[in-house]
Amino acid sequence: MSQRSRACSSALAPPPEQRHDEEEHVQRVRLVQAFLAAGVSSGTLVEMVPCMSEPS
């Protein structure tokens, strides 16, 4: 493996201390991303976040 390949692969690997998000948090992030893509403003999302305590 070349030095460049090693550098790229190590740059993509998460540090060992990085926590892994639970699936429900990942779903919540995807929901927020979908709202943003649909044109909902970040200000409106701030008001909606308390309603998103349960991702389902």
Results as ranks from 00 to 15, higher is better:
S56N: 14
S41V: 01
S2C: 03
H25V: 10
R19H: 12
F35D: 04
P50F: 00
G43K: 06
R4H: 09
S10I: 12
Q3K: 15
H20N: 15
A13N: 09
V40M: 05
S10Q: 15
S10W: 08
P14E: 06
S56K: 13
R28S: 05
M1R: 07
S10V: 10
D21A: 10
S56Q: 14
R28Y: 03
E47D: 12
L36W: 03
R19M: 08
V46D: 05
M1K: 01
Q18I: 08
L45W: 00
V49C: 02
T44P: 02
H25E: 15
L31D: 05
A7Y: 11
A7L: 13
R4G: 03
L31Y: 11
L31F: 09
G43V: 06
E22V: 08
A13W: 06
V49Y: 01
P55T: 04
V46K: 03
V40W: 01
A34P: 03
S42A: 10
A13L: 12
P16V: 04
A11D: 09
M48F: 13
Q18E: 14
Q3A: 07
R28L: 11
S56E: 15
V26K: 04
E47H: 11
R4I: 15
A38Y: 09
R6F: 11
A7C: 10
P14G: 03
E22Q: 13
V49E: 05
T44V: 10
S42M: 10
S5N: 12
A38P: 02
A13P: 04
S5P: 02
E17G: 05
V29N: 13
Q3G: 12
S10A: 12
S41G: 07
C8V: 15
L12F: 10
M1T: 09
V40H: 00
E22T: 07
V46Q: 08
E17Q: 09
C51E: 14
H20P: 07
F35C: 07
C51Y: 14
M52E: 00
E22C: 14
P55K: 01
P14Q: 09
S9K: 10
S42K: 07
E22I: 06
E24M: 07
A11V: 03
L12K: 14
S53G: 13
M52I: 02
D21H: 13
P14N: 06
S9Q: 12
C51R: 13
M52C: 03
V49N: 02
A38D: 13
A34D: 12
Q3F: 12
A13S: 11
F35L: 15
S53M: 09
V46L: 07
P55S: 05
P15M: 15
C8E: 15
H25P: 05
E17Y: 07
A37C: 05
P16L: 02
M1Y: 05
F35Q: 06
P55N: 01
S10F: 12
P16I: 01
A7M: 11
G39E: 01
A7G: 13
L36S: 07
E22S: 11
C8Y: 15
S9T: 10
S41N: 04
S2A: 02
R19D: 09
V32C: 01
L36C: 07
V40Q: 00
P15T: 14
E23P: 05
C51H: 12
V29S: 13
E23V: 10
A11L: 08
